[in-house]
Computed example of a mutant assay.
Amino acid sequence: MELIMASSLTGFRELVGELGGDGDALLRDSGIRPEDSGRTDVFVSLRSAVNAAERAASATGAADFGRQLALRQTMDVLGPVGVAARTAATVAEVFRIFDKFVAAYSPGIAIDVRSGFVDWTLRLDPLPAHPQTVELSLGLILGVLRRFLGADYAPAEIHIPHRRLTSEADYRRYYGCALRDEAAESGFRIDPADLARPVHRDALAHHYLTGYLDESLAGREVSAVRSVADIVGRMLPSGVVTVEFIAQHFGMHPKALQRRLAAEGTTFAAVVDGVRRVTAERYLRDTEMSLLHLSRHLGYAEQGVLTRACRRWFGATPLAYRRTLREEI
C-alpha cells in the first residue's frame, strides 16, 4: 500500500511531449491525474508512478527516459526532506537525512549510506521491472552529489541491477564513471573522503526541520483506508472502483486488501460509500453541478442511484439536501 509524492513526476508530461508522446494519456492510463504531477501536496500510487515511467520509455522509444527525466528534477522534488538535507553538516549526513526521513516522500523507497556506497532500493512486493525508475532515482542522487561536491563531480562507479539500456559510453557520459550492470544493488560507489566533506550547515534550520520530520513520521503507518480512499476518489468518474482494480494499483491480491481494511475496522464497500458521500456533499454544497453530472462523477449509472444514496446518507433527496446546505451557509 505504498504511495509517493506526486512531485516525483516533475517534468514527466513535458518530456514525454517533447519525445512525441502523450504524457497526459500515459498518466491517466496508469491511474494518475495529469494535473497532480509535480505537486508536493499530493500522493499517488508508487506502483502507478513506476508503471508510468516504464511505459513512457516504451511509448517514446527513449531507452534513457529515466536519465532524461532526472535532468529536469532537483532535490526539491523530495519536499521537506530535500529542504532538511540542505542543512546537513557533511555529504554523508545529507544521505543519512534521506535514509531517516525518506518515508515522508515515499515509504516504498529506501536510501542507505554506508562506507563508500550510497544505496537506493524500491520496496514493492511483488517487485515490478523498473529500470527507468532506477536510472531516474540514481540520476537524482547524482544531482544531489553534484550540488554539494561540484558540477563536475563523478562517483567511482555506478551499480544498476538490470542490464544496461544503452551503450556503456552513454552511461559514462551521463554519470561520469564506470558502470556495473546486473549488479546486486542500485547505487554509487563513492570515495569515503567525499562523503566526509563538509557542507554549509544551518544548525538552527537543521534542528527545526529534522524535528518537524520526526514529529510527522513518529509512529506513522500508512493507512489502508486513507490510501484506498485517495485512489477511489480519483477513479470514481471512470466508474472503475472495484476491489480488484484498486488492489491492482497497490500490487496486492484483492483478499489481501480486504484484510488490510478489515484490520482497520472497515470494508472496501464502506470506504467507497464514504468517499461518495463526502464528494456528493461537497458538490451539492459548493457547486451548481447538475444531478446528472454529479451522478456520473460519483460513478453511478443513473441519477436514481444518487437519489437513493442521498436518502440513505442524508435523509433527503439531493435537491432538498442542497437547499438545506445552502440555508446553513
Rank of each mutant, 00 (worst) to 15 (best):
G79D: 06
V118M: 05
Y174S: 01
P107V: 04
A247Y: 01
A247H: 00
Y171D: 07
F98S: 03
R146Y: 02
S45C: 10
A84K: 08
E264N: 11
L71D: 15
S115N: 13
Q258V: 03
E14A: 11
V102Y: 02
L325F: 07
A320F: 03
V240E: 15
A183P: 14
F188P: 08
M289S: 06
R197M: 06
V77S: 04
G66A: 06
R312D: 12
Y321F: 12
E221W: 02
S115A: 13
L319Y: 03
F117V: 12
L306Q: 02
P80Y: 03
Y153H: 12
V272C: 08
S48L: 02
E93T: 14
T267M: 01
R285V: 09
R123M: 14
A263K: 14
L71V: 11
R13E: 13
R308F: 02
R33I: 05
E18G: 15
E93K: 15
A88L: 09
R146W: 05
A196K: 10
L319I: 03
L149P: 07
D29E: 15
E54I: 09
V77Q: 01
I32H: 10
L294E: 02
D191T: 00
T60R: 01
I4K: 00
D112W: 06
K255D: 14
A92E: 15
D99P: 02
Y171I: 07
P80A: 05
G66N: 05
P161T: 10
L136P: 00
V225P: 13
V232S: 05
L209Y: 13
T40E: 06
Y300W: 12
G20C: 14
L319F: 03
P80N: 05
L213D: 06
D181P: 09
L138S: 09
R47Q: 11
R47V: 08
V144K: 00
T324S: 07
V278A: 13
T317D: 13
T279Y: 10
T90Y: 07
R226Q: 13
E14F: 01
F188Q: 08
D194F: 15
S295N: 03
R67M: 14
F12T: 05
L209R: 15
A262Y: 04
F95R: 04
G31D: 05
H159Y: 15
V91S: 04
E302C: 10
D99L: 04
E182M: 12
V144S: 01
R47K: 12
V50H: 01
S137G: 11
A156Y: 09
A84Q: 09
S227R: 04
D202K: 10
